[in-house]
Design a protein around this nucleic acid. Structure first.
Length: 820
RNA sequence: GCGGGAAUGGCGGAAUGGUAGACGCGCUGGUCUCAAACACCAGUAACUUCACGGUUGUGCGAGUUCGAGUCUCGCUUCCCGCACCA
């Protein structure tokens, strides 16, 4: 049992087994009945715009009309189309059906049959990938039949084309080239008329104009009307004539609810005379039966079909087969949060009291990859439960935030291809060591055709071929060709070059020896050690793009983009490998930011970070590196700053002798710092700005250190503040105060704004909007007095340079601006 | 093509119309040390000045405002999602 994306080229992606398509009877959930409510509900919840937009797109609501077109010469048939622009119907100059449309064969004329058949065949043979690659290339075929526009009785030709999708709407489109670009492209290609329908349409000779502005022309009963009245008039007429109606179309399909797997909730249904019946409530829950193997049965039934004697005894006393499909993951993931409200209840999913107490989920944090899966299904599921009166809100999550993904930083190594060895020989051996022998490069395009070897020499009858020693047939062929040409042949294998890759003089010596010998065929008889060759990244730029291929390498073998060669030698990927290192003996890798994934070998395990810095530090660092919803690559460069801060915070409570907190009365400064932190952290938590909370803890710690504060009244509150951010350290310090219960039970510190007040305010002074200096003013000074003080400042007079003050703005508590 | 988001020092980022660059990393100098590491202190947007100071500066171009990183309009680039949806 495979999903579509597990099939490649008609066989299974894994194993390459042939795939057979079978019809299956499956349960599905009628999510389409909730399309409008799922769209409208989005306006009532505080979710990210991107998620809302993705859900809207996925549901794909379009408002329009359906219209029936008669087919000329086929009195009993008609073609129904869906259009969002019924107002353009007088501009119809052709009709297009999807190639799969059921009427195609019935209406195609015998003269056009061949053309239509071959188009259907061609269209069916093209994969989605091919269709995407070809982009907007127009194709189609004429059926020979004509449709009749119900509004003006004009006959328009009926085509088939694969730009019309069988699965959307009715699989038929009315072609209005003046108002729709795809229709326009089609009309141009098949030389069909392009009829203007609005006086505001511009340039329809060069492209379609989809405007709804202006007044209708060439449009029968709606001539002179605007979009709104025109549309209403047409729909009214259609409905009166029973030829169509206003209609809303959705892209969303019903959601298949059956899975052919073992591990899933059993569906509480049994089958009697091919009809499903619900299992009696007293017989619930159904538990999964024992099976020998979790695979489909011989006949292709789901794995539950393997269970022996698994039958339901119905109220009529007879035994019946259970439903064999199980439920999908979203059967549970759509409403699990209600179970959290009342996890031990064994009569209902959650008691009414529990649900009334907890109400909605206040804050849901999750990945944006669930935008149109889980996050849409769960809203649908909840709406349904709401309709049944089981839950108090149509939407289950008031606020949702997508956390940004921590991305991986992938490293790549470069593996030599055949071409590399050819180029290497030229760049690193023949040119530097053997230029006196006038080597000739023959592998470049142009030579390739007529020549068999890679190198020759102007003054010697030796030729060189570079290839793998395993290519015995090729070597033999070249050997014979060389003999026929009267050339002596030196075979250098990729592998022997690899063996001495960091000492090009060795290969140079071999070549020189070969040049001087009289042997007709020279090849190293010993078996080289190297199987593959990898080239340091900082060297690959010397070679062409075809010389190497880039491969993901496990980032745990790499430090600072340098491959640890000792570690690498123990890895399967580098078995029998040689490494071409740079002049400093280093092997470098290239790097790229990608999603973290096993297949990209860029997964970093936080364990070693936690081992070195502790879980609190790891947790805080993740918060510290930026806003929660922003994705960024994992990078521990700044973690020492957080580690240092935690240590300093911890040090506030201890001296060399141990616990060092005293009960003395705190100073005004100390209280001010504490309450600044209470304000900042409390506010920032509310807006999920965790990185600035961490910053402020750093500020608080630095200030308290500067004040040498070790007073309980200050430190105890600080511990409560930091507890959600560094729970382990907070818990330990909390116990230091003598508490035996958890810090989680402490009351959140209350802000006392009185502690934040100061005796004076420092006003920044701007002149023409530019900051020029500051003035310290006692609290309570009147604006008039502040103006006097500001104007008396030396720096103000200097900057004014005698010019008149046009305006002086004092924003109380904030700033002063002088306009001159 | 459609939709959504983003753009600020060497780097991660801060700034809810009011001193741009908080906090941290990195870097530079200093103290300690035989030395290094750690720790601590100071400095660190660019240009200019011995210094005081000055000029420029939040992707680009306009606008609103006493005052714009922030608001409005028009672009550019990048990221994400959807995509022949009639």
């Amino acid at each position: 049992m495979l999903s579509n994306d597990e099939i490649k080229d008609g066989v299974s992606e894994r194993g390459g087994f042939p795939v057979e398509r079978k019809r299956m009877k499956q349960w599905s959930m009628r999510i389409t009945a909730y399309c409008d409510r799922l769209i409208n509900g989005l306006d009532t919840i505080d979710w990210p715009d991107s998620i809302k937009e993705q859900q809207r797109n996925w549901i794909g609501r379009s408002q329009g009309a359906s219209v029936k077109f008669a087919v000329d010469g086929h009195p009993s048939t008609h073609i129904e189309v869906f259009t969002t622009r019924v107002d353009t119907i007088y501009g119809v100059s052709f009709m297009v059906l999807a190639p799969e449309h059921e009427l195609v064969h019935a209406i195609t004329t015998s003269a056009q049959k061949n053309e239509i058949d071959s188009y259907i065949k061609w269209a069916g043979s093209r994969s989605d990938v091919e269709r995407m690659q070809e982009g907007k290339k127009v194709s189609g075929a004429f059926t020979g039949a004509y449709a009749i526009n119900p509004f003006n009785d004009e006959k328009v030709p009926i085509y088939i084309a694969d730009y019309v999708l069988a699965g959307y709407g009715t699989g038929a489109v009315m072609g209005v080239p003046s108002g729709d670009q795809r229709d326009w492209n089609f009309a141009k290609h098949f030389d069909l008329p392009i009829i203007p329908i609005l006086d505001a349409q511009k340039g329809i000779d060069t492209e379609a104009d989809a405007t709804k502005e202006g007044r209708y022309i060439n449009s029968g009963m709606i001539n002179g009307m605007d979009y709104k009245t025109g549309t209403a008039t047409l729909i009214q007429w259609l409905e009166a004539q029973k030829l169509g109606a206003g209609k809303i179309q959705y892209k969303l399909r019903n959601a298949v609810f059956s899975r052919q797997r073992y591990w899933g909730e059993p569906v509480p249904v049994y089958w009697k005379n091919d009809l499903p019946y619900l299992v009696e409530e007293k017989d619930l829950p159904i538990t999964l039966p024992e099976v020998d193997k979790y695979l489909p049965t011989e006949t292709g039934e789901p794995p539950l079909g393997n269970a022996e004697n698994w039958r339901y005894t119905a109220p009529d006393g007879h035994q019946y087969e259970y439903e064999l499909n199980t439920m999908p993951g979203w059967a549970g993931s759509s409403w699990y949060f209600y179970r959290y409200m009342d996890p031990n209840n064994d009569s209902v999913f959650a008691s009414k009291e529990a649900i009334d107490y907890w109400q909605q989920v206040d804050f849901y944090i999750g990945g944006s990859e669930h935008a149109v899966g889980h996050l849409l299904y769960s809203r649908f599921w909840n709406q349904f439960m709401y309709d049944l009166g089981l839950v108090p809100h149509a939407e289950y999550a008031k606020k949702l935030v997508n956390q940004g993904m921590i991305q991986g930083r992938s490293n790549f190594v470069f593996r030599a291809k055949e071409r590399f060895f050819e180029e290497y020989l030229w760049i690193k051996v023949l040119q530097p060591f053997l230029s006196d022998t006038d080597p000739i490069k023959m592998y470049e395009p142009g030579f390739e055709e007529e020549m068999n070897y890679d190198y020759a020499f102007a003054s010697n009858d030796l030729v060189i071929e570079v290839t793998s020693y395993k290519q015995e047939e090729k070597i033999e062929r070249i050997r014979q060709a060389a003999a026929a040409d009267g050339k002596r042949l030196l075979i250098l294998s990729n592998e022997e070059i690899s063996d001495t890759i960091n000492q090009p003089e060795i290969v140079a010596a071999k070549i020189r020896a070969a040049l001087q010998s009289r042997d007709l065929f020279i090849m190293d008889g010993t078996k080289p050690k190297s199987q593959t060759l990898f080239i340091s990244h900082n060297l690959v730029h010397k070679y062409s793009d075809e010389a190497c291929s880039a491969l993901h390498v496990d980032v745990n073998l790499v430090e600072n983009d340098m491959l640890d060669l000792n570690l690498a030698k123990g890895v399967r990927m580098f078995e029998g490998a040689s490494f071409k290192v740079d002049a400093e003996g280093k092997f470098t890798c290239s790097a790229e930011v990608e999603k973290m994934s096993k297949t990209k070998f860029n997964v970093v395990n936080p364990d070693h970070v936690i081992e070195r810095y502790g879980a609190d530090c790891y947790r805080m660092y993740e918060m510290f590196i930026g806003p929660i919803e922003v994705a960024k690559p994992w990078n521990t460069n700044g973690i020492s700053g957080v580690a240092g801060f935690l240590r300093k915070f911890h040090d506030l409570f201890y001296n060399e002798k141990g616990w060092n907190v005293v009960d003395a009365e705190p100073t005004k400064d100390e209280l001010r710092q504490l309450h600044l932190a209470i304000k900042k952290v409390s506010d920032d938590i509310e807006r999920f700005s965790l990185n600035t909370c961490v910053s402020h803890f750093m500020i608080l710690t630095n200030e308290l250190r500067a004040l040498k504060c070790n007073k309980r009244a200050i430190l105890e509150q600080s511990v409560v503040l930091i507890a959600p951010f560094a729970p382990h350290i907070a818990e330990e310090l909390w116990r230091g105060f003598g508490y035996t219960t958890t810090v989680c039970d402490a009351t959140w510190p209350q802000l006392n704004a009185a502690y934040l007040e100061t005796d004076s305010i420092i006003y920044p002074v701007q002149i023409n909007g530019k900051h020029r200096g500051n003035v310290e003013v006692a609290v309570g000074t009147s604006n008039a007095d502040i103006e006097q003080m500001v104007l008396a400042q030396e720096f103000v007079q200097r900057n004014l340079a005698g010019a008149a003050v046009k305006k002086l703005i004092v924003v109380p508590g904030k700033i002063v601006n002088i306009v001159m």
